[in-house]
């Protein structure tokens, strides 16, 4: 079996970012970069599925990670290899692509690789789109299980428990399928030193985006990036009584 895991390089979630003064982009030139946390959860889940299937059924699984981005995205691909992915694909481009374009590129990769399962993050924490997995599922004509907090592999099907606004929904998807990960699916492991060494030997193929010959033209024009209105810092009250008084008399909300 083969699992494809698309991962994205993003600014580390611990870094505070703001727009550039002229609003033309984000001020992230020297920011620490990481694998998008949801993608890391997807890589972890792929590794767990691989381990389980080997232990329970003696089945071998190949985990292929793919990332679309500049040369530097290879750092995140190497990290994923160090976590336990088997092989990496770097679709090389300096362009910043919209989710629809990313989904088209991934669709081309799916046609090439023919995975049984595609695990993506539910959302990239830079663009906060939450679109790519659903779009990829549509282009492939595959079922989708979004916002997964539990996955159970059952031969021809995969059972996915989804975190919805009103509770937890469980769906059985026919394979091949697309699943996107939510935060509570698992707790990703840390890479070990020997695995980091081993990752250097693993295959990382580079494919120039232009080789795929796709129409990836942007559909949206970014007019600018504004800073959100800052909340005014308020007052520190000394007691519960003062708090209640302020909420009643000043804010008039109680």
């Amino acid at each position: 079996m083969k699992i494809l895991v698309p991962i994205k390089r993003v600014v580390d979630p611990g870094v505070r970012v703001r727009p550039l003064a002229d609003g033309s982009g984000m001020d992230i030139a020297n920011a620490k970069m990481s694998i998008n946390p949801f993608c890391e959860i997807a890589v972890e889940e792929a590794i767990r599925l691989k381990e389980q299937r080997l232990a329970n059924e003696g089945v071998t699984t190949e985990i292929v990670v793919v990332s679309i981005g500049a040369q530097s995205t290879q750092e995140q691909l190497r990290s994923a290899l160090a976590l336990g992915a088997d092989r990496a694909l770097h679709i090389a481009t300096d362009a910043s692509l919209e989710p629809l374009a990313i989904a088209k590129v991934l669709h081309a990769v799916v046609r090439q690789e023919q995975p049984r399962l595609i695990l993506l993050g539910k959302q990239s924490i830079d663009g906060d789109h939450n679109q790519t997995g659903q779009m990829l599922a549509a282009l492939c004509g595959y079922p989708q299980g979004t916002f997964a907090s539990r996955i159970e592999y059952k031969g021809e099907e995969i059972w996915v428990t989804r975190e919805l606004d009103g509770g937890l929904q469980t769906l059985a998807l026919k394979l091949p399928a697309v699943v996107t990960t939510d935060l509570r699916l698992n707790q990703p492991r840390f890479p070990t030193m020997p695995n980091i060494m081993k990752a250097r030997q693993k295959a990382l193929a580079v494919i120039p985006l232009a080789d795929l010959d796709l129409d990836l033209q942007a559909r949206l024009q970014t007019l600018g990036l504004d800073s959100p209105k800052l909340r005014q810092q308020g007052v520190i009250v000394k007691s519960v009584a003062e708090l209640v008084d302020k909420l009643r008399q000043e804010a008039k909300v109680l």
Partner: peptide, 11 residues
């Protein structure tokens, strides 16, 4: 975008 650290105006 970026957890609300910026607001993108799109056309």
């Amino acid at each position: 975008v970026y957890a609300g650290s910026a607001l993108a105006r799109l056309r």
